[in-house]
């Protein structure tokens, strides 16, 4: 989200005899909670980590449109339909902000989309679960967006300026996403017995996958330690997961719904809720591509991109033909 002239990578390490000095300046800036901006010197690994993370985040936003868009045409009231359309639209917007942030490091959106479409870059596994009923829209808003927000709020202070700025905008816009989900579930929970059952079923299916959104336990997380030092990440996976559980338990009570975990109970000593073991086998399987919707999500994404190619080509061709007219008009 910075200027493109400023997007070009700032030289390579070989070009600079004084790499060590740059590195010291970089480390000091990060340690002092300063911000790194696009053309600043940065270690190659920092750059690579950021591009990977921002791209994955952007991909998650646009793939994440699908499970919810699945219900736009069936939304049961016009008010809900408007809310859902606005929300799915926001996700496209957030994808745009994040791709722009990634582009500040010199990787084009086209390149990133290509990596998504060919499976070389990932998106959040949560979107490989299906939305089977209308209540799933509520469960996604409350739990999935809730988990995302827990993850994202600390990213507003991420050491990389463009990422942090994108996240500020996203968090601001996303505050309505979680609330609409909660409100939707509340209406169902307090509605007819069938609606209540629909809400409970959705929460039963989304609870565990939401907990997995925080990533593997700290002792197994491949990238965590380095990302924490670089202040790309501010809290550990397990800390954030615990925070999320603590927030959700009382919210579920107010909803009149139960969370599907018999081990869930307040631990006076820790000052936190204890919760049961997470089934990481499922997490790994979904990550590997064996989730219920992996194939479907990617296929739809590729299809939209391929079917849109003629449109993008046409607009580019028109711009090339008419770039002189525009200048003449402006003169």
């Amino acid at each position: 989200m910075a200027t493109a002239a400023a997007h070009k990578a700032y030289g390579t390490e070989e070009e600079h005899a004084g790499t060590a000095a740059y590195e010291r300046a970089f480390d000091a800036a990060v340690a002092a909670d300063g911000r790194i901006e696009p053309r600043d010197w940065m270690p190659d690994a920092y750059r690579a980590t950021l591009v990977r993370q921002m791209a994955q985040h952007a991909h998650s936003e646009i793939i994440g449109m699908q499970p919810e868009a699945n219900w736009i045409t069936r939304a049961p009231s016009l008010r809900r339909k408007a809310i859902l359309m606005a929300k799915v639209q926001d996700e496209a917007g957030h994808g745009l902000y994040l791709y722009s942030a990634a582009e500040t490091l010199g990787t084009s959106r086209e390149e990133l989309l290509d990596k998504l479409h060919s499976g070389r870059q990932k998106y959040s596994s949560i979107f490989n679960y299906p939305t089977l009923t209308w209540a799933d829209v509520g469960a996604i808003g409350w739990l999935v967006d809730g988990a995302a927000i827990t993850n994202q709020v600390p990213l507003c202070r991420c050491s990389y300026g463009p990422y942090a700025r994108a996240m500020v905008r996203i968090c601001k816009e996303e505050s309505f996403h979680q609330r609409q989900g909660y409100e939707l579930l509340l209406a169902l929970s307090r509605g007819t017995p069938e609606q209540h059952a629909m809400a409970q079923d959705a929460v039963d299916r989304w609870w565990w996958p939401s907990l997995m959104m925080f990533g593997p336990p700290d002792d197994e997380s491949a990238h965590s330690a380095q990302s924490m030092t670089w202040k790309i990440k501010r809290h550990s996976n397990d800390d954030l997961r615990q925070r999320f559980v603590d927030i959700c338990v009382p919210q579920a009570e107010s909803l009149g719904l139960t969370l599907p975990d018999p081990d869930l109970k307040w631990n006076e000593e820790r000052g936190h809720y204890d919760f049961g073991p997470i089934d990481w086998t499922e997490f790994k399987e979904v990550l590997k591509g064996n989730g219920p919707c992996n194939e479907q999500r990617l296929t739809q994404r590729r299809k939209a991109h391929e079917e849109g190619a003629w449109v993008r080509e046409a607009a580019a061709a028109y711009a090339a033909k008419h770039s002189d007219d525009t200048k003449a008009e402006q003169a």
Binding site: M65, I72, A82, A86, Q89, A92, G95, A304, V311
Partner: peptide, 28 residues
């Protein structure tokens, strides 16, 4: 609204949704 997730380019997702939301507002 049926275009959501199918538009030819991300910018157009946002544009089509804006139009759909205007129309839905009028309808209501």
């Amino acid at each position: 609204g049926e275009w959501a997730g199918h538009a030819p380019v991300l910018e157009e997702e946002v544009a089509l949704a804006n139009i759909a939301l205007d129309l839905l507002g009028q309808a209501r």
